[in-house]
């Protein structure tokens, strides 16, 4: 999400470089966010069992995602906005994931669907990358094995909320710097004092 903004082959495309600042910027941000989130096109990146639940959300009548404008699963990463990593990423597949991610053009988001994509899931072994966030930046994690189609929809809607608040231009650079500072200063998870434990 807040990766390198629109820097492809050394030239910037899109609205990024034509931005005003200040009050006008917030209006542009709101408009851009509205456009972007209301027709996110997913890239087909179904790997394993979660891919079947992803197909169900696309094709089964109960869980229709066309209502969000997302039923067009683009095969070509150049035309896709959202990469739903659905399934376990094996060591052999990891470079391919990275290559597909790199080929997607800004703005792009990643939803890691399922326990295996988020953290390696139940397969804590030599063959599976322990979380696709080792390879690509993830915007929203969705646990489950496999997550129900309703859960996937919930994750997509939460992603829409995230996109709604995304900043552009000067504001974006500011947010990126803040997030990075916070992440560098954060305590690692296993050193956070457990619930109810005294210092």
């Amino acid at each position: 999400m807040y990766g390198d903004a629109a820097d492809w082959n050394g030239t910037s495309v899109g609205i990024e470089e034509k931005l005003p600042s200040g009050f006008l910027l917030t209006t542009v941000e709101k408009l851009a966010a509205y456009m972007r989130r209301n027709s996110l096109w997913p890239a087909t990146f179904g790997l394993a069992c979660c891919a079947i639940e992803m197909m169900a959300i696309g094709s089964a009548q109960k869980y229709d995602i066309s209502r969000f404008g997302m039923e067009v699963f683009r095969a070509s990463p150049r035309q896709a906005d959202l990469m739903i990593v659905a399934g376990r990423v094996s060591q052999k597949m990891a470079p391919v994931v990275r290559q597909i991610y790199d080929q997607m053009s800004e703005p792009k988001w990643v939803l890691s669907m399922g326990a295996c994509a988020s953290s390696g899931g139940m397969f804590n072994n030599y063959a599976i990358v322990q979380g696709v966030d080792h390879i690509i930046p993830v915007d929203i994690y969705l646990p489950g094995c496999p997550p129900r189609p309703e859960m996937l929809m919930d994750a997509i809607l939460k992603l829409h909320e995230q996109i709604k608040d995304e900043k552009l231009g000067v504001n974006r650079k500011k947010v990126i710097a803040e997030v990075e500072k916070a992440a560098l200063a954060a305590t690692p998870t296993h050193q956070i004092p457990a619930f109810g434990a005294s210092e």
Binding site: G120, N124, N125, Y126, A127, Q130, P188, T189, H190, Q191, I192, P193, A194, F195, A197
Partner: peptide, 13 residues
């Protein structure tokens, strides 16, 4: 050949 897993990280341990 080891199983090759990594330690599982929880909050606090």
């Amino acid at each position: 050949y080891p199983l090759g897993g990594i330690p599982v990280e929880y909050i606090g341990a």
